[in-house]
Design a protein around this nucleic acid. Structure first.
Lengths: 220, 220
DNA sequence: CCTATTTTTAATCATTTGATTAAAATATTT
DNA sequence: AAATATTTTAATCAAATGATTAAAAATAGG
């Protein structure tokens, strides 16, 4: 372990970490199939053989990046959805804010994840058991609150999956469609991000509106 | 042109068409980078060399499929958005119905398109000029109607891009996230499609609700 | 400073993959 | 049916690509 100490000291620039950072950028941008190990070597400025020296194979390195991304998406919100001190409405506001902040920093993670999941759903589920993403299986407190409100008939008589889909769609889709949206509208990245900031406030209002509107419009 | 006549007769099963059909399936499922010309040969049950014989290269064949998909998405709705006999509200209902029907038949086209656009936005715009998708540049009638309603202050004081994003997100995103949604909820394809059918009616209501709700909630 | 260990490098390997070719098979024309 | 044109096949090529190796360089420990 000659270099272990050195790595610990200058952790930020250890060879292993530099490869991972480069791999994260390239894999996330281009996807697994379009990424060459040589792209990662070039992006990191390191020798090609070091990738296999540190990570054994392209696939093993990819799995690490994929797991990181999945955790960033799911693990990071567990504290929010299980917080017993916030209301459902507050949780929605906090979640939207959390995700939009994260997506402004990492705008191409959603399309990366969705594409890789689509490429081979079974393989991904099998390889990266949900256990590794979700810590434990405690029932999510958010769900409990949801059920309570649904029971009081304050919520419209529609499948809650619709509301969940709407939440995810309204929050994440703009980033998935960002290249197309920006091309068609001529928006700069800054202008686009400003719109996303606006959505932090708008989406919770919209979610509210959709839940209530269906209550009336659906009844007839 | 010895076989041209034969092709014309049994158009459905001409070699060229069989390759294109196989290519459509494989490219749409796996994307350009992950697709091997051998996959297409195997899927079509035809000899590998025939792909190059009929289409010169993998890339040329891919371009054809990509153009078809883009047209399916954009060209097919031109009649709807330019119809002067329908109201804005009616147009939204018709568009949602049109897209959901199309997406139930072709559920993995959106993730395919979004991924390829993301992979290299400039290349795609350059290669397949918008001209080929959009016939002419007549101002879309839907836009005119939109502006009129916006001018009468019937619409909330938010950037119309938000509403457009919401429309696309609510309609398309569930299909993009389908593998994940179905895995997490345990829904069968049939049950999932039934939910999508429900959304034909729900999304126009929601779009309406979001436009109006923001009017009030945003004012303070 | 010397030795052992770890890390890095350049060269190379074995497959994979897009594409080509020449011959065989099939269809069309006369 | 013979001659011609077209389509299909099997074999092969050249480049790209993931991975390995042996030697060189750098580092750590005594």
């Amino acid at each position: 372990m000659a270099k272990k100490a050195k790595e610990a000291i200058e952790k930020n620039t250890s060879t292993e970490e530099r490869i991972k950072e480069a791999a994260r950028r390239v894999f996330t941008q281009k996807g697994y199939a379009a990424t060459r190990t040589r792209d990662i070597a070039e992006e990191s400025g390191l020798n090609l053989a070091l990738i296999n020296y540190y990570f054994r194979s392209k696939e093993k390195l990819f799995d690490i990046i994929m797991l990181e991304h999945l955790q960033l998406f799911i693990h990071s919100i567990m504290g929010i959805v299980n917080d017993e001190s916030t209301s459902l409405q507050e949780k929605i506001e906090i979640l939207v804010g959390h995700y939009i902040d994260m997506l402004i920093k990492n705008p191409n993670i959603p399309i990366f994840l969705l594409n890789e999941i689509n490429a081979d759903p079974k393989k991904l589920i099998a390889k990266i058991g949900i256990d590794k993403i979700q810590h434990g299986h405690e029932p999510v407190y958010l769900m409990k609150q949801w059920m309570e409100i649904a029971a009081t008939k304050k919520m419209a008589n529609i499948n809650p999956i619709h509301i969940l889909m709407n939440f995810v769609a309204l929050t994440i889709f703009p980033f998935v469609g960002s290249p197309l949206i920006r091309n068609r509208t001529g928006l700069s990245i800054e202008a686009f991000n400003k719109l996303m900031e606006e959505r932090k406030k708008l989406i919770p209002i919209w979610i509210n509106a959709t839940m209530n509107s269906a209550l009336y419009d659906n009844g007839q």
